[in-house]
Amino acid sequence: MAEHGPESEPARSDRERSEQGLLPRHRTIYQRANDRGEIDFERVPAAVLTIPFDLVRHDMLMELRPLKPARIQSIVDELFLPLVRTHQGSPGRS
């Protein structure tokens, strides 16, 4: 029964997710963007970083089909990037 305790693999994954606010694969995406200078990973709140994934998941559950490319572009360009820019260190960075 130790595998169902607080330190089981699912429990660790849930804890890591809540501590970081991001799944490891999402964190990797943003770390790469940070390394390229596209975002300031340390300044952008985890809540903002999870928004694109949350919206994609929501749309897929509600529509029961993959998102159209125009919707993905809208999520990124009209919602996510403006929120990221409000948390950037300097106005020139995107």
Rank of each mutant, 00 (worst) to 15 (best):
M1R: 12
M1T: 06
M1V: 01
E3A: 11
E3M: 09
E7Y: 11
E7R: 09
S8K: 01
P10G: 00
E16Q: 09
E16C: 08
E16M: 12
R17H: 09
S18Q: 14
E19C: 02
Q20H: 12
Q20W: 04
G21A: 10
L23S: 08
L23K: 15
P24F: 05
H26V: 14
R27D: 10
T28N: 06
T28R: 15
T28Y: 13
T28G: 12
I29F: 13
Y30C: 08
Y30I: 07
Q31C: 07
Q31N: 14
R32N: 07
A33D: 12
N34E: 11
N34K: 05
D35L: 15
R36K: 07
R36D: 00
R36Y: 05
I39D: 00
D40S: 09
F41L: 11
E42Y: 12
P45G: 05
A46G: 03
A47K: 03
L49W: 05
L49F: 07
T50H: 10
I51V: 15
P52S: 08
P52F: 11
D54P: 02
D54G: 12
D54F: 15
L55R: 09
V56K: 01
R57I: 05
H58I: 01
D59C: 15
D59M: 15
M60G: 01
M60T: 07
M62V: 13
E63A: 11
L64W: 06
L64P: 02
L67A: 00
P69K: 13
A70I: 10
I72N: 02
S74M: 08
D77V: 08
D77L: 13
D77Q: 15
E78H: 15
E78C: 08
E78Q: 13
L79Q: 08
F80A: 00
F80I: 06
L81N: 03
L81D: 03
L83F: 11
R85P: 00
T86A: 09
H87C: 03
Q88P: 00
S90Y: 14
S90T: 13
S90D: 11
S90Q: 14
S90M: 12
R93V: 10
R93Q: 14
R93A: 11
S94Q: 04
